[in-house]
């Protein structure tokens, strides 16, 4: 190792300290929310809560536990994650596999590829999209939340690139033994693609858990809102205007503790799978760059 001067080492410490500060700052808003959710209402409305709870109590969480509406929305979200995630998985695999074949094996491959890429970059306006989905009679149905995004094309491309990077020898050997494309996919491609499959699954779980807008416009009955839409309506849409009257302001403040707790509970599933997310999302970004 090359000799390192004292200045050099001081600069090292400065950079490290700076970056730790940046990292901590990125988390402070979340810590503040958690602290508010655990604090006494009076302390919160007095603007006294910073990064540590004042007048620690779990009232807000107790209230959420007994809040049927919250759990109904939570249930809708869980359902859409399970149903939507499964649909995304099956359709991504079934779409990516033919597209990963050579044009010799699947002559229409290039045509389909262009169609899907065109579909991906085509950003259709929200009005005709809404009219279409409501025209199918999907309003207020769970299918409205899972069918429109059932084929995540970016995941298809990612998985297709991964399939193409798998050595052809395995494929050819199985083919000589008379394996059909379904058997190839099932017994060779899927088992060798587990990291890519984990990545696309996490993409769709996070995507489904986090989306609120489809729930807002496609569900007329608030009972059918997924959790993010429910929270959006409660925490954001219902707030009185910033310069609203004093009475409105007081009512809003007394809700801050509860709202903070709701925000935090909605974060918990993401926090639970965060170690996986970090590992596979990073890998996914790199996989997206894998080329023939």
């Amino acid at each position: 190792m090359v000799f390192r001067s004292t200045t050099d080492r001081i600069v090292d410490y400065l950079i490290t300290t700076l970056l730790i500060l940046v990292g901590v700052t990125a988390l402070l808003p979340l810590v503040n929310t958690l602290a508010i959710s655990l604090s006494d209402k009076a302390a919160v409305s007095g603007g006294m809560v910073g990064l540590w709870p004042v007048g620690f109590n779990l009232d807000a969480y107790g209230f959420i536990l007994r809040d049927d509406k919250f759990w109904r929305a939570f249930g809708v979200s869980v359902l859409r994650v399970l149903l939507g995630g499964a649909l995304n998985f099956v359709l991504t695999v079934m779409t990516a596999f033919p597209l990963s074949r050579s044009t010799r094996a699947f002559p229409a491959r290039d045509l389909f590829m262009w169609l899907f890429v065109f579909g991906m970059i085509l950003n259709v306006g929200i009005v005709p999209w809404y009219l279409t989905v409501s025209g199918y009679g999907l309003l207020d149905s769970i299918w409205a939340l899972v069918l429109p995004g059932a084929v995540p094309i970016w995941s298809v491309i990612l998985l297709m690139n991964f399939f193409r990077s798998i050595p052809k020898e395995l494929d050819e050997a199985a083919r000589i033994d008379g394996a059909t494309p379904w058997q190839l996919l099932w017994s060779i491609y899927l088992p060798t693609s587990l990291p890519a499959l984990a990545t696309i699954t996490l993409f769709s779980i996070v995507g489904h858990w986090n989306s609120f807008f489809d729930g807002l416009i496609l569900m007329n009955n608030p009972d059918n809102y997924p959790l993010q839409t429910y929270i959006q309506q409660l925490v954001i849409a219902d707030r009185p205007a910033l310069h609203g009257g004093q009475a409105a302001l007081m009512a809003q403040i007394s809700n801050n503790t509860l709202n903070a707790a709701k925000l935090f509970v909605a974060m918990i599933p993401i926090l639970l799978i965060y170690p996986l997310l970090q590992r596979y999302f990073v890998r996914g970004i790199m996989l997206g760059a894998v080329k023939e």
Partner: peptide, 25 residues
């Protein structure tokens, strides 16, 4: 038969994309 299998595989995804991207277009 191989080609046919590929068409069958891609069909559901294609149908959904047509239904939710090209129909709105």
């Amino acid at each position: 038969s191989e080609r046919r299998a590929y068409y069958v595989m891609i069909l559901p995804g294609l149908a959904l994309m047509v239904a939710f991207t090209f129909v709105p277009l």
